[in-house]
Design a binder for these strands. Structure first.
Length: 679
DNA sequence: TCACTACACGCCCTCTGCTGGTTGAGC
DNA sequence: AGCTCAACCAGCAGAGGGCGTGTAGTGA
């Protein structure tokens, strides 16, 4: 919504020279096509513009009025003024060219000056109409503008500023940005062909339109042929209800039919004017007809009216950005020059305005937080922050995602959320070029992956050190939280209410051979191993070879037997002496032979690498075991059936350093099986 | 009219914490 | 080989801090 201010004369005592003409550029509707949810920082945006941007980005605002500090403000002029842009026949295409300038201008004329004034009329400017002696409002169509001028312009008579009594003459014309000045020629020639005359008899509250008299409150006339453009227009009051709530407008906008809109609009027009006049007379206050603003000074109102105008006469010669006031321009110029006259006495910060400095000091130094939450201990420097905080109590989520059910409490979170739909990863690690969706995520990545001083978080309950604090919290929750239902140890009767304690306790059972044979010294960790062992004492051999009826205590033994004696495809590994070529079924036997044969010593054959190295260790172990047997120190060898997946053999003592448990299991098992077979 | 001040709005940032997928060790 | 589980890791949202900028009140 661009609203520009023109110049003119209200014809009201004391108002000469004050703003009285408003160019109201009506946006071609709030139906901008959806765009990615992006907003450039620093872009000058009106609240309405921000709303439209958000809407265009798939962001819808739910809720009434501006209840936060981050949402749209009060109903903007684009909402409160008549929305005549989109409905005009032959209107320019959507976009800037489609916007219309609605010009209200007043002039003081004397009878007989009409022609002269017309000659002096600036392009698109003042028209003069004098009709009898009565005050006349001329609703004219600016030259080159379509016929269906929104008659709602009549409402823009500045209630509170000038009245029907005071007003001598007013022209309301509509211009188009795209063709701002067609018209001097046509104006001069067409005379009043494009001018709609409205005679106002204030005492009777009637309108005389083109000579026809209408009862003022009757909207039917407004919708009639006299004011054709009103019909179908989206009409919103520029004077909200007494409470100033935008909800009132929203309701009317959404619920009112065109005819009702006309009624509403027309009625509100008169009410606004009347109320403003009464207010002025009684309280000496000044009210804006375009919004709820009131003030005690005319100058304040004049200044305020600039926000409804698009005029920004103060131009930055460096970047051509325009500003409404000299102060704003001066502040802006400071951004070019780097001038920050307000320096903080407690730090190096400096600011363009004193207000910024004061706020900075509250944030950083005085820590003054005057805005306190009544529901918790939160307090803030700024009221808007308190408003935002209160949403965490109320759960209000005014900003809805148009693509999913998510709704956020403020615009930034919604904007951040929209990235999840676009798949965008705006943040890139400068080291490994990995991309991330949020800056914080990238920061943690850099810290954990590329930083020398990687932070570590020590668990206060155990020795665990975890890289991320959040994961430490998960660790505490999973392992150190108190459990209502006690956890029982699977090895003993101990119970624990903390998972970590149970895990630590179970470690005490590691390598614990609690299953002991009552007939010998055998002990093992698992009961099933003891069951197999006891077959040694009972003589039970449940696994029978179907070929030769030989019986075995373990399935593995039967399997090896079958392969060796009954499987023609079975090719047993043969270990030959490198010196004399004598064959052995076991490497250990071959190795023992080789020593006596004079080929090499046992400890010299352990020079291979890789997988051979693994084999080597196995061989060495077997060799050591064999030595232990030979020396009589190999007292007990337990053979336990591991179902059909192998056997586990636990040497009681080998008198040497053991290899890894896994290697022990597999390699020793093979050798011991051969031993068993040989037996 | 200007200047100062207070206030409001909006944007961006950080910190924080939860969640779910991945990975590797242990069994 | 397959399962379990704890640590790792990125994604994502909640909450709040800080500041730029525009507007309103008011005195000079």
């Amino acid at each position: 919504m661009r609203v520009s201010e023109g110049s003119g004369d209200l014809g009201v005592p004391g108002c000469r020279g004050s703003p009285s003409v408003f160019l109201c550029q009506v946006p071609p509707a709030m139906e901008a096509p959806p765009e990615p949810f992006t907003q450039s920082k620093g872009a000058a945006r009106s609240p309405e513009g921000a709303r439209q941007e958000a809407a265009g980005a798939g962001i819808s605002r739910v809720g009434l009025g501006d209840q936060d500090g981050e949402g749209a403000g009060v109903a903007s002029p684009a909402q409160v003024l008549l929305g005549g842009g989109e409905g005009r026949a032959g209107a320019a295409p959507a976009g800037e060219a489609g916007k219309h300038l609605l010009v209200l201008q007043t002039v003081h004329l004397q009878a007989g000056e009409e022609d002269e004034e017309k000659e002096a009329e600036p392009q698109g400017g003042v028209r003069v109409v004098m009709q009898d002696e009565a005050p006349v409002v001329v609703v004219g169509e600016g030259v080159g503008v379509q016929q269906d001028v929104p008659p709602g312009v009549a409402i823009s008579l500045q209630d509170g500023i000038y009245t029907f009594h005071d007003m001598e003459l007013m022209q309301i014309s509509v211009l188009q940005d795209a063709a701002p000045g067609k018209s001097k020629e046509s104006k001069s020639t067409e005379k009043f062909a494009d001018v709609l005359l409205i005679k106002i008899d204030r005492s009777k509250e009637v309108l005389a339109v083109e000579g026809k008299v209408h009862q003022a409150p009757t909207a039917e006339e407004l919708r009639g042929s006299e004011l054709p453009a009103l019909e179908g227009k989206k009409i919103q009051s520029c004077k909200p209800d007494g409470g100033g709530s935008a909800s009132h407008h929203d309701y009317k906008e959404e619920d009112a039919t065109p005819s009702e809109e006309a009624d509403i609009k027309y009625t509100e027009t008169f009410r606004a004017q009347t109320n403003a006049l009464q207010q002025k007379e009684e309280k000496e206050t000044f009210s804006c007809v375009l919004c709820t603003f009131t003030c005690l000074r005319m100058s304040s109102l004049n200044r305020h009216m600039k926000i409804h105008s698009d005029e920004k006469p103060h131009l930055c010669h460096l970047c051509l950005r325009a500003f409404r006031t000299v102060t704003l321009l001066r502040n802006h110029m400071n951004t070019h020059t780097g001038t920050r006259p307000y320096k903080c006495s407690d730090c190096d910060m400096a600011f363009v305005t004193s207000g910024e400095l004061a706020r900075h000091r509250r944030y950083k130094h005085t820590l003054e937080k005057p805005f306190k939450c009544t529901l918790c201990k939160y307090c803030s420097v700024e009221a808007s922050k308190l408003k935002r905080h209160i949403r965490s109590h109320t759960g209000e989520r005014p900003y809805h995602c148009s693509l999913c059910s998510y709704a956020s409490k403020d615009t930034y979170k919604l904007k951040r959320h929209m990235i999840t739909h676009s798949g965008e990863k705006p943040y890139q690690c400068y080291v490994c070029q990995a991309r991330f969706t949020q800056s914080g995520t990238m920061k943690i990545h850099v810290l954990q992956k590329h930083s020398e001083n990687v932070p570590r978080h020590q668990c206060p309950r155990c020795e665990t050190v975890i890289a991320r604090k959040s994961d430490l919290r998960v660790h505490l929750r999973n392992l150190h939280s108190h459990l209502a239902v006690a956890l029982k140890c699977s090895y003993c009767e101990a119970v624990f209410h903390e998972r970590y304690a149970l895990i630590q306790h179970k470690k005490t059972h590691r390598n614990e051979k609690k299953f002991k044979c009552d007939q010998c010294s055998y002990a093992c960790k698992q009961e099933r191993h003891l069951i197999v062992h006891k077959r040694i004492h009972t003589g039970e051999k449940p696994f029978i070879c179907l070929c030769c009826s030989k019986c075995f205590r373990q399935k593995q033994l039967l399997t090896v037997h079958f392969r060796k004696y009954h499987d023609s495809d079975f090719k047993p590994t043969v270990f030959e002496c490198p010196k004399c070529g004598k064959s052995y079924s076991r490497w250990s036997n071959m190795h023992k032979h080789a020593e006596t044969c004079g080929f090499m010593r046992a400890n010299t054959i352990t020079s291979s690498k890789g997988s051979k190295g693994k084999k080597k260790r196995c061989r060495s172990l077997e060799h050591a075991k064999q030595e232990a047997v030979d020396q009589g120190s190999f007292q007990d060898v337990s053979i336990m059936n591991m179902e059909d997946c192998g056997t586990e053999i636990v040497p009681v003592t080998y008198g040497i350093e053991m290899t890894t448990p896994r290697e022990q299991k597999t390699e020793i098992t093979c050798e011991m099986l051969f031993d068993t077979m040989d037996k």
